[in-house]
Design a protein around this nucleic acid. Structure first.
Lengths: 115, 115
DNA sequence: TTCTATGCATAGGTGGTCTATGGTTCACGG
DNA sequence: CCGTGAACCATAGACCACCTATGCATAGAA
C-alpha cells in the first residue's frame, strides 16, 4: 500500500553482510546497519531486531569479537572486529553466495534448452 | 565433513524458481525439482519436503493451477500451470530478486568508499 | 526379489527474521 | 525548559520457510 517497497533482505545473507562490513574495519552495531543501507543505496534495511541477535549469534560462534568504546559522537557503543575464524567464514559464505546466486541466474535465464 | 557441499538454496527464492520453471510450460512436481537441478548444473537441489508444501502454497495463493495427468512414463502425476496472477507474481519476484542481489553485490564489492 | 527411480504427501523441528517493546543519552526547536 | 527525535543497545514473541524423516505406491532393473 505504502509506496515504500519491502526492503526485507534475502534470508541467510545477513550474517555474510555483517561479516563483510566488519571486515572493512571495526564498527559498532548501529553503524553496521547504516553502512549496509548506504552502500546498498537504501535497498537493504536491516532492522534492529534482526541486527542485534545476529551480532550476538556471530560473536557466540567466534566470528566476531566485541568491545565497548566510544563512537564518533562520544557515545558508548559496542565495537565489533572480525576474527580469523570469522574471516574464513566470510570467504566460505561469499563462495556459497556466488555459487547459489549464479545458479539462480541460470534458472531465470532459462527458456532455451527446453525439449 | 562429506565432500558434498551443502546444496541448500537461498531462502525465499524457492517460490520464484518454481514459478519460473512452470512458466516454461506445464510440469509435474517431481519434474520441477529435476529441472531446477539440471538447469542449475546440480547446484540447486530442492528437497521433496520443501517442494510439495511450496506447490500447495502457490496453488492456494492462486499462482498455480494443478491437474492430474500422465507423465512421460505413463505414470500418474500432478501437472502445474502458471496462472495470470502467477505470471504477475513472477515478474514481481524477479524484479525484487534483481534489486536485492544487486544490493548484496554492492556490499560484497565494497572496500573502496571507506573514510 | 530386492533395490532404485518415479511420483505424491505430511509431521515435526529448527532457525533466522520481523514486529513490538523497552531503556539511555544527546541535541535541537519551540 | 520540555518534548521530540536521533543515536545506541537489547529482548521477547510470533511467524514462516525450509529441512529431515517418514510414509505410501508403482515400474523397471539387477
Amino acid at each position: 500500500m505504502a509506496p515504500t517497497e519491502k526492503t526485507d533482505l534475502l534470508q541467510g545473507t545477513l550474517d555474510m553482510l555483517i561479516l563483510k562490513i566488519v571486515a572493512l574495519g571495526p564498527v559498532h552495531g548501529y553503524g553496521i546497519s547504516q553502512r549496509i543501507r548506504q552502500i546498498s543505496k537504501e535497498v537493504l534495511n536491516v532492522q534492529q531486531g534482526s541486527l542485534y541477535p545476529a551480532l550476538h549469534r556471530l560473536e557466540k560462534r567466534g566470528w566476531l569479537s566485541a568491545e565497548w568504546g566510544d563512537s564518533e559522537n562520544g557515545r558508548e557503543a559496542k565495537f565489533y572486529k572480525l576474527s580469523a575464524k570469522g574471516r574464513r567464514q566470510l570467504t566460505t559464505e561469499e563462495a556459497s553466495w556466488n555459487r547459489l546466486s549464479q545458479a539462480v541466474a541460470l534458472i531465470l535465464d532459462a527458456a532455451r534448452q527446453e525439449a
